[in-house]
Structures are given as structure tokens and as C-alpha cells.
């Protein structure tokens, strides 16, 4: 829950602490934003990646940038691994992030050995993290 709003967290995939979902797809995972992220971002206008495909990434390494109606943020890798491909169609039109964030709005494919959160763990993280998120947002209003 974020305040009184329920976040839709599908049970058929795993999650990372930085609000991305992981779904097994061949030899890699498909990765995208959870509804929680999308809810905070709102309309996405622009997405750009700061690294090339096939790059090895560290956890919390910078991988890109996103601009939306509500926010401007750097994007960071959810875990260590290798990003094998980006969803190229989002570069021209990122609107699928809003309309289909668990499907065609996927962000990239990634190979990783990292441990992920189960849907239940992620929901718990959201519950615990909501106060922190509000502090983060409100802290920037002053």
C-alpha cells in the first residue's frame, strides 16, 4: 500500500529493492518498473540509457535517465550482472511504460545471479518503505 492506494504486484515474477520486476525470459530476465514506480513517475516523456548493450553492471551502477511529468531521475542497476538488451521501442516512444508496465513496457533484459525478492517480500518492503518515500518527496518541496 502507498497511503490508501494499492499497488498491483503480479505474483508471477520476482522483484528488486529499487522497484523493478524480474521475469525469467530464456537465459536472462526481463526487467521493468513496478506499478509503484510508475505511479510515482506518472507520464514518462523520455528514457535514455547511459551504457551500451552487453555491458556488465554493478549493483547501483548508473545505467540511464528518465523524465516524466513528475520527476527526473537517474536510473540504477537493480543488481550486479550483465544488461544484454534494451527495449529499443521505448526510446522513441516510452508511453508503454505507463500503459503496459508489466508487459510491453519492459525496460531491459539482464543476466544476473543476484537474489531477488518474492512478491510477498516486495509488498512488505513497500509497506515499510512508504514513510521513507514520503520523506524523500516532501523533503524536496521546501
Amino acid at each position: 500500500m502507498m497511503g490508501k492506494f494499492e499497488a498491483q504486484i503480479p505474483g508471477d515474477r520476482l522483484y528488486a529493492r529499487n522497484h523493478m520486476w524480474f521475469q525469467a525470459d530464456g537465459d536472462a530476465f526481463r526487467v521493468g518498473f513496478t506499478s509503484y514506480s510508475v505511479r510515482l513517475l506518472q507520464d514518462v516523456y523520455f528514457l535514455d540509457w547511459a551504457i551500451d548493450q552487453q555491458s556488465a553492471v554493478q549493483e547501483k551502477g548508473e545505467i540511464g535517465e528518465i523524465e516524466s511529468s513528475k520527476a527526473l531521475s537517474t536510473l540504477y542497476s537493480p543488481c550486479a550482472g550483465q544488461i544484454v538488451a534494451f527495449n529499443e521501442t521505448l526510446l522513441d516512444d516510452p508511453s508503454k511504460i505507463n500503459t503496459d508496465n508489466y508487459g510491453e513496457g519492459w525496460l531491459f533484459r539482464m543476466q544476473t545471479e543476484a537474489n531477488m525478492l518474492t512478491p510477498d517480500d516486495y509488498l512488505k518492503l513497500l509497506d515499510e518503505g512508504w514513510d521513507e518515500t514520503q520523506r524523500l518527496i516532501k523533503g524536496q518541496l521546501n
Binding site: R17, K60, Y76
Partner: peptide, 25 residues
Amino acid sequence: AGMKIDLSKLFGAPSAIELAAQERD
């Protein structure tokens, strides 16, 4: 000055120390 709120922390921005360690690596 930035015009928008920064959600970087939410998406996993490293702390200054983490960043320094990355750069050192």
C-alpha cells in the same frame, strides 16, 4: 537548478561513499 523532484534515491542511487568506492574500483 533542477526544476523537478529527484527520485534517484528511490531508484537506488548510491551514497557518496558508495559512489566513491565505485569510482575507485
